[in-house]
């Protein structure tokens, strides 16, 4: 049986891993590779590294960071988000060490590039990111460059239904970083019922995770800040979710991949 996933999220801004609160207030955490390495050792089901200043600054993907992470030899699937705008970006990100990529701005700008990425990399490698909010009974799709919200376009809904993108990363951007902040109505009212959803933003405890993972369309929860408050948090969450089809917590390597990578270079 296909397991529901717990995805560890590392948010990167100006080259540093940060805690983010609603994408407007940030606290530094340290080097991204250190956080990624911890998630790898603690048995996360996937690791999402999202570099949040790349699209806004039009600086393209952070290839240097992806290469650095690729050299760690992670044993956990790596998802990259941030600044993907061309087919060449996508191909290079995968070659440097990521397993899947997230597209966000492209969903507003150029769906034809999304189609090309799918044809080249396969739909399974593509995740669409939708920062959403729920107000007055309607779901708003946020454009973080223009800081405005609108309804999800019909064009995008058709693309989602076509299977060109394998999964959607639904972020509750208003409640991101807030304990128990995620608005469940975003799941209940999402317009494409067959879409496979990864839920992110304000997911802080196992009861909330359990409730979200009970939805048939929710394939994974992604957790950011709340993994930073204690060691081995992924394992503790997994232990608490044993009643669900979640892969068991794993406990293995204790050595530093970063030290090994440095020794090899």
């Amino acid at each position: 049986m296909l397991k529901k996933r717990l995805i560890g999220v590392v948010t990167v801004k100006d080259g540093w891993a940060v805690q983010s609160f609603g994408y407007h207030r940030y606290l530094p955490l340290g080097k991204p590779e250190c956080l990624v390495e911890n998630l790898d050792r603690w048995g996360a089901d996937e690791i999402l590294i999202q570099v949040i200043d790349r699209s806004k600054n039009r600086s393209g993907p952070d290839f240097h960071l992806i290469e650095k992470l690729g050299k760690l030899g992670l044993e956990t699937p790596l998802i990259y988000a941030g600044g993907v705008s061309t087919l060449e970006d996508g191909v290079k990100i995968i070659q440097l060490g990521a397993d899947r990529i997230v597209v966000d701005a492209l969903l507003h700008d150029e769906l034809v590039v999304v189609q090309k990425l799918s044809e080249r990399l396969g739909a399974q490698a593509l995740i669409g990111s939708l920062p959403l909010s729920y107000n007055s009974g309607a779901i708003g799709w946020f454009n973080y460059r223009s800081k405005t919200s609108k309804l999800i376009s019909n064009e995008l809904l058709v693309l989602i239904q076509s299977g060109i993108i394998s999964e959607l990363l639904i972020s509750d951007w208003e409640h991101e970083g807030l304990p128990r902040g995620f608005e469940q109505k975003l799941v209940e009212n999402f317009p494409v019922k067959e879409a496979r959803l990864i839920i992110f933003g304000g997911i802080s405890n196992s009861e909330q995770m359990s409730a979200l993972l009970e939805y048939s369309g929710v394939v994974a929860v992604a957790i950011g800040n709340f993994l930073s408050y204690r060691e081995h948090a992924i394992q503790m969450y997994k232990e608490a979710l044993r009643a669900l089809p979640v892969r068991l917590a794993s406990y293995e390597s204790t050595f530093s991949l970063i030290e090994v990578a440095n020794a090899k270079n």
């Binding site: 049986m1 296909l2 397991k3 529901k4 996933r5 089901d45 739909a123 399974q124 076509s162 299977g163 394998s166 999964e167 067959e194 496979r196 394939v219 994974a220 892969r247």
Partner: peptide, 11 residues
């Protein structure tokens, strides 16, 4: 069937 991609951990 139905774009049912298989993504994640399975036995």
């Amino acid at each position: 069937a139905n774009h049912g991609g298989h993504i994640g951990w399975n036995t």
